[in-house]
Design a binder for these strands. Structure first.
Length: 403
RNA sequence: GCGGGCGUAGUCCAGCCCGGUUCAAGACGCCUCCCUGUCACGGAGGAGAUCGUGGGUUCAAAUCCCAUCGCCCGCG
């Protein structure tokens, strides 16, 4: 993979570039729609292509568990099936670039995230907690209920059948090699927003050790094979602690990765996120691509691009779609609201996506209220197009020197 | 005509047999909000019935009694 920067903004850290992979070129900055289980939920790969999506991100942990064959032996996870199918591109019939997340987020989402019932971002109020004891800080040495985080990796419990499975840096990279995405990520621990400074620092050291192991495994196996080399991104952690963010960015940035992911939380409010992104980006090598993991509400996008982010994945457009929420120039619309039954107009007046050209709010509202899955498909399609189009306009603005 | 059953929020229905600190529960629907490296059919709140109608017993009735209206099932 090669990354080229075609223009750098003079008024922000934004930059225009393109990622060249063996499956095509990605114009950056861009959104990476989430295809956890080798599918953008509700859409076919052909439809996803029509939403102006350029690159997708699938998930190592989920694809390791599924596809699964009953009675399989340890080490024969879903990646084997993908490999036999000719890799994930063939498997899901998406001929364009793909990333895989390492499973590091599942250390959080299936661990403290589940225990404390929090997402990776919480606002100041929730951090304080209405129930003081519910929102306690995670102290050093604490372990999530369902998994064991060790020096060399993590013992998970399969959310599907409860069986124990171990994934560490070595395992994650091997699985990702078999899945065969163009860009893969180092295995990390995404820390919870409630993690204390001490816990986060300790976790960081582990994530840094894992980063080195990932690089070694990656480099060792790349030598022999004639296949196009995958790009490997390291991941910066450090939670909402500025000193740890800088320490992590310096360390991960010094390693020979092809690009860098920025993970975890950045403090509850959007301004803090912007600030911290600047600190991290300042420490990362200028010429390598930066991927912000799991961020991308519409209102965040311009900010993170201005902070110097090249790519970012986010479930928001697709996840909200499945809750009946469409993103439009009027803001978020909850299409389940009965008032939309009276609106004979497209989701967004200015949108020229295939959904908006044909379907109207009243019909989509009816489908939602009737529990018809086509509603979720239509909104997913529109949201992805709307986001991708929005970001395309930002690229144009960068080109014109407006951002 | 006789015998039996039922009548509680928009809908379905719990409570009635052992009447009062549950004058009303739940589900669906409705309304509002929440979802940021994803879990379509999820989470958190909220509005909404004075218990068919009239009368009686009682300190107190959705809960007991009488009448009446409506619906349903048997038998004629």
């Amino acid at each position: 993979m090669q990354f080229h920067i075609s223009k750098k903004s003079k008024i922000s850290n934004a930059r225009l570039g393109f990622l060249e992979t063996s499956h095509g070129v990605v114009q950056t900055p861009c959104l990476v729609p989430v295809a956890t289980q080798a599918v953008v939920k509700t859409l076919t790969s052909e439809e996803v292509l029509q939403t102006k999506s350029q690159i997708l991100i699938a998930n190592t942990f989920h694809l390791h568990l599924k596809p699964s064959v009953a009675g399989r032996k340890p080490g024969q996870g879903g990646e084997k099936i993908l490999q036999k199918a000719g890799g994930i591109h063939e498997f899901m019939h998406w001929k364009n670039p793909i990333m895989t997340d390492s499973g590091g987020f599942q250390v959080f989402s299936l661990g403290f995230g589940q225990d404390l019932n929090v997402g990776k971002i919480i606002n100041a109020k929730d951090r304080m907690g209405s129930d003081a004891d519910l929102k306690e800080e995670i102290k050093i040495g604490a372990q999530p209920k369902k998994l064991k985080i060790r020096q060399d990796g993590v013992f998970f419990r399969s959310p599907i059948d409860g069986r124990e499975l171990f994934i560490g840096p070595k395992e994650s990279i091997k699985i990702q090699q078999q899945i065969g995405a163009d860009i893969i990520f180092a295995f990390d621990e995404c820390t919870a927003p409630l993690a204390s400074h001490e816990y986060t620092k300790n976790s960081l050291l582990k994530t840094h050790e894992w980063a080195k192991v990932c690089l070694n495994v990656h480099n060792a196996s790349a030598k022999g094979s004639g296949e196009p080399k995958q790009a490997l991104y390291g991941i910066v952690q450090g939670g909402r602690y500025k000193d740890l963010r800088i320490e992590s960015a310096k360390f991960i940035g010094s390693l020979d990765f092809d690009g860098f992911g920025i993970g975890g939380e950045f403090g509850g409010d959007k301004k803090t996120m912007e600030e911290m992104l600047k600190w991290v980006v300042a420490e990362l090598p200028e010429k390598k691509p930066r991927h912000l993991l799991g961020i991308g509400h519409l209102e965040d996008i311009e900010k993170i691009i201005k902070a110097g982010v090249d790519t970012f994945d986010c479930t928001v457009p697709t996840h909200y779609a499945r809750r009946g929420v469409a993103f439009t120039s009027e803001g978020k619309l909850n299409l389940k609201q009965t008032k939309f039954l009276k609106k004979r107009e497209p989701l967004d007046k200015g949108c020229v996506c295939q959904v908006c050209l044909v379907y109207k709010k009243d019909y989509i509202c009816h489908l939602l209220k009737s529990g018809e899955i086509t509603a979720l498909r239509l909104i997913t399609f529109h949201n992805l197009y709307y986001f991708n189009n929005y970001i395309e306009e930002i690229r144009e603005k960068i080109k014109r020197g407006e951002i």
